[in-house]
């Protein structure tokens, strides 16, 4: 029963990863693509981590999975911001589109 629930969580997580990739491929510019990667993949990882944590044998494993989720979430938000800021700055240097 628990295994089934964990498998469902991991399955949903995979769906969000696919949706994030779809957004990466289909969205028109770098900023919209960052939305897809930071949000959809972020939830995808959270669901997969939750599913794997349910199957974990020890508390240390659960803590390790939680740490992985935490640092990836932090890095994803921070690097999304840095990539967007860099894109804005370089776009304006070459007189590119703004707004």
């Amino acid at each position: 029963m628990l295994g089934l629930f964990a498998a469902a969580l991991i399955g949903f997580g995979t769906v969000f990863f696919i949706a994030g990739t779809l957004g990466l491929l289909r969205f028109p510019d770098i900023f919209c693509r960052l939305h897809a990667l930071t949000k959809a993949d972020g939830l995808g990882l959270a669901l997969i981590a939750l599913g794997v944590a349910l199957m974990a044998g020890t508390w240390a494993e659960v803590l390790r999975i939680a740490l992985i989720w935490f640092f990836v979430a932090l890095a994803s938000a921070t690097s999304g911001h840095l990539i967007a800021a860099h894109a804005r700055q370089t776009m304006q240097e070459v007189g590119g589109a703004d707004d």
Binding site: L34, H35, T38, T78, G80, H81, R88
Partner: peptide, 14 residues
């Protein structure tokens, strides 16, 4: 700033 990016439809850009 980090949570803005997780809200629906918004991304902290700069």
């Amino acid at each position: 700033l980090n949570t803005i990016t997780l809200l629906p439809g918004t991304l902290s850009a700069e």
